[in-house]
């Protein structure tokens, strides 16, 4: 139930809490500083196990309800054991889940009832880059495509506007479309 309009649009997003948080963080910009963390441990071969549990935000240490774990590996065609998704697939997962969560939030805010939202994500990569065959080829994706199928109580243009606004506000979309300084050290 949206308190502002009193209607029954429900995408499971608490918009009032988000609007409240936005207003609170506008007045206290230092509390808006977050640090997200993950740990990653090598298992064997290209197999790694990563966990996320704690993060920093709102001025203090925070914690997920539970510790989440992620196996990453490479498929057997790379002579690996395929114990999990490849790291580059996790990037696609990050992008799609960020955009899709954003769509639900914005839809709630705009009083649009969603019935189903399905994203298909594809990233193109030329392995000549990571294999060092051709130094003119980059390592990473040279293009990523996201395709949405959305069933909602809204016009085509309103649905397109949801998807566009979600890109505008997405952290992962921003990280992939604009450069980010990355610092790696050995302790």
């Amino acid at each position: 139930m949206n308190m502002e309009t009193g209607n029954s649009i429900d995408n499971g997003v608490n918009v009032d809490a988000l609007v409240g948080a936005r207003s609170a963080l506008t007045d206290a910009p230092e509390a808006a500083r977050f640090t997200w963390r993950a740990t990653c441990e090598w298992k064997n071969g290209t197999h790694t196990y990563s966990t996320v549990e704690k993060f920093f935000g709102l001025g203090g240490e925070q914690q997920h309800k539970t510790r989440f774990g992620f196996d990453a590996d490479h498929p057997e065609i790379f002579a690996s054991e395929d114990n999990g998704a490849t790291p580059v697939e996790y990037v696609l997962v990050g992008l799609a889940s960020c955009l899709t969560g954003g769509i639900a939030t914005i839809a709630q805010y705009r009083n649009i009832q969603l019935r189903s939202v399905i994203a298909t994500v594809e990233g193109d990569m030329d392995l000549q880059g990571i294999l060092g065959i051709d130094s003119d080829v980059r390592n990473g994706y040279d293009g990523i495509r996201v395709s949405y199928k959305i069933d909602a109580d809204a016009s085509d243009d309103d649905i397109r506007a949801l998807v566009a606004q979600s890109q505008k506000r997405s952290a992962v979309y921003d990280m992939l479309t604009s450069p980010t300084n990355v610092t790696v050290v050995v302790e």
Partner: peptide, 23 residues
């Protein structure tokens, strides 16, 4: 969006900015 070693870096979000403006 930035400079790195004499190279200008440009965001890959042009499609969305144009979609937003059209909508």
């Amino acid at each position: 969006v930035g400079m790195q070693n004499g190279k200008g870096l440009f965001a890959g979000s042009l499609h969305n900015l144009c979609d937003l403006a059209d909508l």
